[in-house]
Simulated assay, not measured.
Amino acid sequence: MRGGALCKRSCDNVHRNSDCRKALPRPTGRQLSTAHGIRGNSVHPGSIETGSATSVRRDESDVARACNARTLAAIPLGARGEPRDVAHGVLFLASDESKYVTGAELVLDGGCTAV
Rank of each mutant, 00 (worst) to 15 (best):
M1I: 06
R2Y: 12
G3E: 05
G3V: 06
G4A: 07
A5N: 06
L6D: 03
C7T: 14
K8N: 15
K8D: 11
C11T: 13
D12P: 10
D12T: 13
D12V: 13
D12A: 08
V14T: 14
V14C: 04
H15T: 07
R16Y: 09
N17A: 14
D19Y: 13
D19P: 11
D19S: 13
L24H: 03
P25N: 07
R26M: 13
P27T: 10
T28Y: 06
T28N: 04
G29E: 11
Q31V: 13
Q31A: 11
T34Y: 05
T34H: 07
H36L: 14
H36C: 05
G37M: 13
I38W: 07
R39C: 12
N41K: 00
N41V: 02
H44W: 01
H44T: 02
P45M: 07
G46D: 09
G46T: 02
E49M: 05
E49Y: 03
E49C: 09
G51F: 00
S52E: 10
S52Q: 08
T54V: 14
V56G: 04
V56L: 10
R58S: 08
R58P: 00
D59T: 07
E60V: 15
S61A: 01
V63W: 06
A64W: 10
A64V: 01
R65A: 15
A66I: 02
A66V: 05
R70K: 04
T71H: 06
L72S: 09
A73N: 12
A74Q: 14
A74T: 08
I75P: 01
G78I: 07
R80Q: 08
R80T: 12
G81F: 06
E82T: 11
R84C: 07
R84V: 13
V86E: 04
A87H: 03
H88S: 02
H88Q: 09
H88A: 14
G89L: 00
G89A: 12
V90W: 04
V90S: 02
V90H: 02
L91M: 01
L93W: 05
A94E: 09
D96G: 14
S98V: 01
K99V: 10
Y100I: 04
T102F: 08
G103E: 15
A104W: 03
A104L: 12
A104D: 09
L106R: 01
L108W: 06
D109A: 04
D109Q: 05
G110T: 10
C112G: 09
T113F: 01
T113H: 09
A114W: 06
A114C: 13
A114Q: 10
